[in-house]
């Protein structure tokens, strides 16, 4: 069974249709890249999969492990294994990162009928993962993302991904605002999570990120549809020729 099946998805924001019948199938173990110019609907797709309010699905469906994803609340989706790494992670002053991580992890485990992590086990696990991502301990004591640099915010997203062990990771413009060193650290974190059970959808504007996270499949989106799919070489082709050809095709 496919992990994620998006079938002929049509989405509106207020009166404007953003996605006009988008289809996408992702199998366990695969890494898909979705590329496209600004305004092609990449982020809308990621938001609709995660369940962000404000989007109206007017047609089509999304199946996750065979279940109707659109019927589920965002927290139910998270507990079932959907994870969105935000393009712009929000700052939450007053909630220590550690407290947030524990609350979120335990909420997901509880929803799945699993026992909550004991504090020592949890701390050990967080510290391990944080160390592998070069996240200093004092960052974990600070408010969620408060005063974090762009790179730190992205690493914090990957830390959560590593902790929650989702089966579908959607990375929305993970490379935006990162310099090359920060990008490498983030990409290493993502690559460490690649596994035969887990799939990833990497949304990006630029080919650069795909040098570090090498996709199995590349899709080109334009004007709310997937207009071309291919192997990783498609990304290089785009880098050379740009998106203009597809805008005409769409």
């Amino acid at each position: 069974m496919s992990l994620l099946e998006v079938k002929n998805l049509q989405v509106r924001v207020e009166e404007r249709e953003i996605l006009h019948g988008l289809s996408l199938t992702v199998n366990p173990g695969e890494v898909h890249a979705i590329m496209g110019p600004n305004g092609s609907g990449k982020s809308t797709l990621s938001h609709v999969i995660a369940g962000k309010p404000g989007y109206q699905v007017t047609g089509g469906e999304i199946l996750f492990k065979g279940e109707d994803l659109l019927e589920m609340a965002p927290d139910v989706r998270a507990a079932k294994g959907v994870f969105l790494a935000f393009q712009y992670p929000v700052e939450i002053p007053g909630v220590a990162t550690m407290n947030f991580l524990r609350t979120a992890l335990n909420a997901q485990r509880k929803a799945r009928g699993e026992s909550e992590y004991s504090t020592p086990d949890f701390l050990k696990k967080v510290r391990e993962v944080a160390a592998s991502l070069n996240i200093p301990q004092d960052m974990l004591r600070r408010g969620v993302n408060v005063g974090f640099s762009g790179g730190e915010k992205k690493r914090n997203e990957i830390l959560q991904m590593a902790l929650f062990q989702p089966s579908l990771c959607i990375l929305d413009e993970m490379d935006s605002g990162l310099d090359i060193d920060a990008l490498r650290v983030a990409a290493d974190g993502v690559n460490a999570l690649r596994s035969p059970e887990r799939a990833m959808v990497v949304i990006t504007h630029y080919q650069r990120l795909l040098n570090y996270i090498v996709p199995d499949v590349v899709h080109v989106m334009s004007k709310g549809r997937v207009v071309k799919s291919g192997g990783k070489e498609l990304a290089l082709e785009l880098e050379a020729s740009g998106y203009a050809q597809f805008e005409d095709a769409a």
Binding site: G51, P74, D75, A78, F100
Partner: peptide, 20 residues
């Protein structure tokens, strides 16, 4: 939404934000 996307129910997310 950020908190709900991380698995917190509506009430839990509200509670955490109120604490913050």
């Amino acid at each position: 939404f950020y908190l709900r996307a991380r698995g917190l129910s509506e009430k839990e997310a509200q509670a955490l934000l109120i604490q913050a």
